[in-house]
Design a protein around this nucleic acid. Sequence first.
DNA 1: TTTAGCACTCCGGGAAAGTGAGTGCTAAAC
DNA 2: GTTTAGCACTCACTTTCCCGGAGTGCTAAA
Lengths: 349, 349
Amino acid sequence: MELTDRKKQILKVVVEDYIQTAEPVGSKTIAAEMGGSVSSATIRNELADLVELGYLEQPHTSAGRVPSPKGYRLYVNELMERQKLSLDETEKINQSLQLKMEELDRVIAQAGRAVSSFVNYPAYMTTVGKKKLTARRFELLPVDERSCIVVMMMSDSRVKSQLLHLQLKVDLDQLPILINLLNGHFTAIPPNEMNERLMDVAEQIPPQLFLLLSQTVSYAVDMLEEAGQREVITAGANQLLKLPEFRDADKAHELMSFLADSKENLPMPEDDGPMKILIGPENVSDALKDTSVVMASYDIGDDMRGLIGVVGPTRMDYATVAARLSGFADGLTRLFGKQELPPKEDTKE
Amino acid sequence: MELTDRKKQILKVVVEDYIQTAEPVGSKTIAAEMGGSVSSATIRNELADLVELGYLEQPHTSAGRVPSPKGYRLYVNELMERQKLSLDETEKINQSLQLKMEELDRVIAQAGRAVSSFVNYPAYMTTVGKKKLTARRFELLPVDERSCIVVMMMSDSRVKSQLLHLQLKVDLDQLPILINLLNGHFTAIPPNEMNERLMDVAEQIPPQLFLLLSQTVSYAVDMLEEAGQREVITAGANQLLKLPEFRDADKAHELMSFLADSKENLPMPEDDGPMKILIGPENVSDALKDTSVVMASYDIGDDMRGLIGVVGPTRMDYATVAARLSGFADGLTRLFGKQELPPKEDTKE
DNA sequence: TTTAGCACTCCGGGAAAGTGAGTGCTAAAC
DNA sequence: GTTTAGCACTCACTTTCCCGGAGTGCTAAA
């Protein structure tokens, strides 16, 4: 059953007023805000209906009205005006994304901080990739007879490297053999198969080479597994404390702890479009039951996507947050698009 | 003027009781805790003296006593019993330091989280190194004609690498020339001199090689500067909210914001031993004026030291925190000592 | 269907009063 | 001189009570 236009307009006013003030909104205020075309008594009748229908709630008998999650949902879906970013804001976003291309994690972390301080709510960020990460190419660079550098290029074109200290001296002439072995047998396979593969090739080479090989492979496995698993970082949790709904230390603590160590259970958009909003009880995690989350995703390249989420009270300024967040998402897509380097022939598996 | 033994004992009881309860301590409680050898009236006389001398404070006329910073200082210097870690605790610390040797930053961050959750206060971590970071060795690995991998080993033996996308095609045969150039002219000099040096060698090579060279050098400069500047990470800020002194959202917010973005102004021990305690107003930063900080440092190797700090209310459990923190510091020293790999002949400059 | 009017509800703040932990002082005991 | 018991006093904290005001729901008129 559709709401009348007037009811919708009233709902909109209630939501927007409540978002600003965090105080229940009374009929008189609404009447004023609607330009005096109707009296407060009329509004009261409408309000009673809206409560009846579940779009609004009344903290107690003689208080104003507060939007319910259902109310927010309707607001977000139909009533909210999609905001455009001002030039100034776009400018600011781009400025905060003037990042040197460093390691991916660091870029994301920095962007996360920028997002959080730009929307004034805590933010979290992570990445998702459909394909399993594999090694694309190995190199071994001799340093001295007791150590060498492993370089591994991964299927997402990131390059990782580390100094390895060898248990045994290795003949430098034999390094090419190892490199061939690595590139021949250990590329394009998922990390969990690498140890098996290691057994397969064990007989083909002399034992002292095998030691270095297994050290290298073990490093590769670690790296791939670590880079492949989604890490969630959060930023700006302290922003919560400015909000009246989190002045209660217990509430704030609960949510902040949740944000601090939830690595897995933060909401992620699996399927649909670039933007998603979860309101209050729509969240699965208990800790988020009376908060809202706005999420956006962006392209990183190589079939990876990045994800930004913003957490706030249900009384969140959805319009502004959504606008700014998608501004950031666009900015990040552009950032990674520009710096996206490599050809990626071999990522089929 | 020295305090009598009894005064000291009373001070100790007050501090330890207050640390536990966060409530002003009364004469009766003290008398009881001292085994009834003296009456509460006697204690009251002593307390009055201790207030007079500035070791204790009285929130208001008819309240119990609370230690002043001066009182805590005496406690920390003389009265506090150096705690030993229980086997169980040592075990836990070691367990939480079972880290794979990954990138330094990540290891430190992880250790920071462990520290924080082990002492139940926020922790911050950073590194300090006396010498300027330089490049020790370069390598270029061709990928295809439009891209190659730069590998740079730094003077602290860390290895960084990245895929570079080339603006111009480069003849693979010429890479060795570049590598020689890099290793000959750009090692063991601080990053800020690299651009000058780049000018110096400009004439020696053909222009299209120069482009790749300058790209590589620019990457090297970025890397060195970034790795050389101390980054401060914080963990467990939410722990604050459990403490009665931070139930006030404004106070908590102030300190948490300070921790979140203070990259420079957190206290660092410059000189002295492995452990340092700053109490309340002994801190320089305003935001820390009524908090205390316990710091420890540990060896990373290659003339770098790591630093762990713990922030809490002046009413901090100094004995326990100090013990656990130094447990961690030892653990980390051992961790880095074990995995310390390389020979370091060339770090002289 | 809208509006004005009115009695009613209930939150929030502030004053008043009671409670109790703890003190400082005095005078006696050791 | 030091310690102790006794006692009146102080002051934060809690509870209770009261009141104003914002906002409601209902009714009756427009």
